[in-house]
């Protein structure tokens, strides 16, 4: 029994240019504690879809309901509930130190200084950034910046963590660290939605897989069910699956 949907997307359309590009009639429900893997070709609408979940974009038609409230009616409520981590951490980081950047979100929520301190300390510990708290974000490595971007969102204590291409430009060690963080957040009860082209990295963690193609939802199943159909939608099938082997977890 999945219970009540945390996010409900009803016939969502988003038209960028008046010619029907963007999102075309997506309907789905996202439940608590799910780990959803979103895949699809470049330009399939993954990033646009994510921006609707976070109320950064408003539907051309249709509706996105987060915690029972439409994003049209109360966008701030959706922004608080759904934490969005962008593809490029450089444009997401606004603070002059690691500590300040993580505090940015809680400050926007008008929390007290004491609560902000506590939340930042927790996020620093969760993402393994304690030793970097006074460093300038500009001096961090790619993996550290990515973890900082996630820490900045996690400090706002969202119910859903949405990550757009989190593994791009990460080295192997950075990728393993990030996967370990995602696994930890999921075990702690956070709902996670990840868009990636490198699906083998979170394949074993995902409880559900969604495939978008030209703005449409073309598949919504458990990952093992979809694995052999992936290349039909322009998504690379993991090597292990091609050779008939079991796909192994990537976490350390």
């Amino acid at each position: 029994m999945k219970g009540e949907a945390l996010i409900e997307v009803k016939k969502l359309y988003h038209d960028y240019d008046g010619q029907g590009s963007g999102i075309q009639g997506i309907s789905l429900k996202i439940f608590r504690r799910e780990f959803i893997l979103v895949a699809g070709r470049n330009g399939s609408g993954k990033s646009t879809f994510f921006r609707h979940l976070n109320a950064l974009l408003m539907p051309t038609s249709g509706e996105v309901i987060v915690n029972g409230i439409s994003t049209r009616r109360n966008p701030i409520s959706a922004t608080k509930s759904v934490g969005l981590v962008f593809q490029d951490p450089d444009t997401q980081i606004v603070g002059e130190t690691v500590f300040d950047d993580i505090a940015f979100g809680p400050e926007n929520l008008k929390l007290s200084r004491k609560t902000i301190e506590e939340r930042v300390k927790t996020a620093l510990a969760d993402l393994g950034l304690e030793d970097l708290r006074d460093r300038s974000p500009a001096s961090l490595s790619g993996g550290e910046k990515r973890r900082l971007a996630i820490a900045g969102v996690m400090a706002m204590e969202p119910e859903v963590l949405v990550l757009d291409e989190p593994f791009s430009n990460l080295d192997h060690a950075g990728t393993l660290d990030l996967i370990a963080c995602l696994e930890k957040f999921h075990h702690a009860g956070c709902t996670i939605v990840v868009a990636t082209h490198e699906i083998e990295k979170v394949f074993t963690l995902a409880t559900r897989m969604i495939i978008l193609d030209r703005g449409r939802l073309v598949a919504d199943e458990s990952p093992p069910v979809l694995v052999k159909q992936l290349e039909t939608f322009g998504v690379r099938e993991p090597c292990a699956s091609r050779f008939g082997l079991e796909i192994m977890p990537w976490a350390r």
Binding site: T79, T91, G105, E107, N108, K110
Partner: peptide, 17 residues
């Protein structure tokens, strides 16, 4: 543009702590 989006995604407004 990207930074404005990222700030909006973290509930940025004039009224902050």
């Amino acid at each position: 543009d990207q930074m404005a989006d990222a700030m909006a995604a973290r509930c940025y407004s004039d009224d902050r702590t």
